[in-house]
């Protein structure tokens, strides 16, 4: 219930109508959207029961490792009802053709693979919010100071997922495991996205906001 209540509000992409359509415009819109979502995701993290009790340095390490996974999981969940398209925002839905023009076809395909996996499982909102918190707590940062405290957070979120499945999916005792087993694909897709946006950053043609840049640099 706390995780459902902590979900950030929807964000609109609002592509700049003054800019002509181009790959630069698409990427600028996405980077701007990601930057605004990141601000919301940081305050979301603070509402995860137990997260704020971690030391500040561990809170930072978890977010620096998992920020892209969180962004991608949110896009994947929003895209569940939309066949072959990614719903970056309600006003920014991208099909393969548009992704190709933005140079994002590989990433589009990878995220759609994740969407198909969740769609075939009929991922529910309760599972989505818990899985997202687990992705954060389980981000495998190399810089954790209090490993036991982070393990405690992982355990309590894992427990919440087990409890939910025990009540709502008695028919499939392996559902929790199936959900957890989607996390490697999420990690892989996130690493692909970080690499791609790092190379866009190096090109220097797309303006990026400071928080997005800061987190992109944390992953290099």
């Amino acid at each position: 219930t706390l995780l459902l209540g902590a979900e950030p509000e929807k964000v609109c992409a609002m592509p700049d109508p003054a800019l002509p359509d181009s790959d630069i415009k698409s990427l600028t819109t996405l980077c701007d959207l990601a930057d605004r979502e990141l601000v919301l995701n940081i305050s979301w993290a603070k509402h995860i029961p137990g997260f704020s009790s971690l030391c500040l340095s561990d809170q930072m390490s978890l977010l620096q490792s998992a920020w892209m996974e969180i962004l991608i999981l949110r896009v994947a969940f929003r895209s569940l009802l939309c066949e072959d398209k990614l719903v970056f925002a309600e006003d920014y839905i991208m099909d393969a053709e548009q992704a190709k023009s933005a140079g994002l076809l590989e990433l589009h395909k990878a995220i759609l693979q994740l969407v198909r996996r969740y769609r075939s499982m009929r991922l529910e909102r309760e599972e989505f919010v818990t899985l997202k918190a687990i992705a954060l707590a389980n981000s495998d940062s190399m810089h954790i100071e209090d490993v036991e405290a982070v393990q405690g957070l992982q355990d309590s979120l894992h427990e919440a997922l087990l409890d939910y499945e025990c009540v709502h999916h008695r028919e499939d005792p392996r559902r929790t495991g199936k959900l957890i087993m989607t996390l490697p694909l999420l990690r892989q897709t996130s690493a692909k996205a970080v690499r791609h946006f790092c190379s866009i950053k190096q090109d220097g043609r797309v303006p990026m906001h400071k928080l997005f840049l800061e987190l992109l640099e944390a992953n290099v």
Partner: peptide
């Protein structure tokens, strides 16, 4: 940590 000023600031904000 110096390099991650914005993340640090946002985490310290009370909201």
């Amino acid at each position: 940590k110096e390099k991650h000023k914005i993340l640090h600031r946002l985490l310290q904000n009370s909201s």
